[in-house]
């Protein structure tokens, strides 16, 4: 029994970090109707940035989030202005291709700077753990999860309690309507994309202490994150958190009770199962469907 609880707890700790990593992806999708395929690559980029900061200055990798988050915010804003802005009216295939192109470029740049080998960030507490009752909580995972939750709460407050947040949500649901309300939809989109990418800054710093990474790891991460947002309901932030926790637990259970070899299959199985059985995801919105879509 303890084994089962231990497995679930480890999964939940992982899930908290997944939730932060997925939040930006679902936010950008919700507001801009774009699947940012480069989200995984941005996460890996932030992990490498953290690695560089940690090796050069010895700064704690979790604290490095204070540097990587604004850095990624700036990168997101830049990418939006240079590239994404030009394809706002384009069909789905265009945005998928463009963000895929961005992912390839980021992967290439990472390879040029840090070479195509596995890296890992191993602070002093890397192998420590805290024991609560009969359950072990690895210190790194615990810190990462707590940090992720704190950032998610801030993000949630931003979206629901501020006018900027309301403008973001309004633009996500009806851009033309928002425009008529005086919302500058273009700057809202830029802000949203930058916030979405900023979450990969903190996310990347946190995952750098959980998993080793190399440039092409982004494929695995984007698959996992897509699985999470599909499971939670695409565009739904709360859904992404629930989906992430379930994904973390499911992966841990698969690793312990089935086979480590098949862990990477979990997101794909989840994607198929959800899109077939409940296409709108666990928390996807459902509204009256007889009125013509916007």
């Amino acid at each position: 029994m303890t084994g089962v609880i231990q497995t679930i707890v480890l999964g939940v700790l992982l899930g908290g970090v997944y939730a932060l990593a997925a939040s930006g992806l679902t936010l950008v999708f919700g507001v801009m109707n774009i699947i940012n395929v480069a989200h995984g690559a941005m996460l890996i980029l932030a992990a490498y940035l953290t690695f560089a900061i940690w090796t050069h200055t010895g700064l704690d990798p979790i604290l490095a989030a204070l540097i990587t988050t604004p850095a990624m915010f700036g990168l997101g804003w830049l990418i939006y202005q240079l590239l994404i802005r030009r394809i706002r009216q384009a069909p789905a295939s265009t945005s998928v291709l463009l963000t895929f192109a961005i992912a390839l470029m980021i992967e290439g740049i990472i390879g040029l700077i840090w070479k195509g080998v596995f890296r890992a960030v191993t602070p002093g507490y890397f192998n420590d753990s805290v024991k609560v009752g009969s359950i072990y909580l690895p210190t790194a995972r615990l810190y990462a999860c707590v940090t992720a939750i704190a950032i998610l709460v801030l993000l949630w407050l931003l979206l629901t309690r501020t006018w900027a947040g309301r403008a973001i949500r309004a633009s996500s649901q009806n851009p033309q309507g928002a425009m008529l309300m005086g919302v500058d939809v273009a700057s809202v989109a830029a802000l949203t994309f930058a916030i979405g990418v900023a979450t990969t800054g903190a996310g990347g710093s946190l995952i750098s202490v959980l998993y080793p990474f190399f440039p092409a790891s982004h494929y695995q991460w984007i698959s996992r994150l897509l699985g999470i947002i599909v499971l939670g309901g695409m565009g739904n932030l709360t859904g992404a958190v629930v989906g992430a926790l379930l994904m973390g637990v499911a992966e841990n259970i698969c690793a312990v009770y089935i086979s480590v070899q098949w862990v990477t299959a979990v997101p794909y199985v989840v994607i198929f199962a959800v899109l077939l059985l409940r296409p709108r995801g666990l928390l996807g919105a459902r509204t009256r469907e007889d009125v013509a879509p916007a």
Binding site: A92, S223, G227, A265, P267, V269, F272, L275, P279
Partner: peptide, 23 residues
């Protein structure tokens, strides 16, 4: 199998389809 899946969901499911076969 994916009869009811459209739009972005469809893109995602095709990625999953490819990668699961690879796996």
């Amino acid at each position: 199998v994916v009869m009811r899946t459209r739009g972005h969901s469809f893109v995602i499911i095709t990625i999953a389809f490819l990668l699961i076969l690879q796996l």
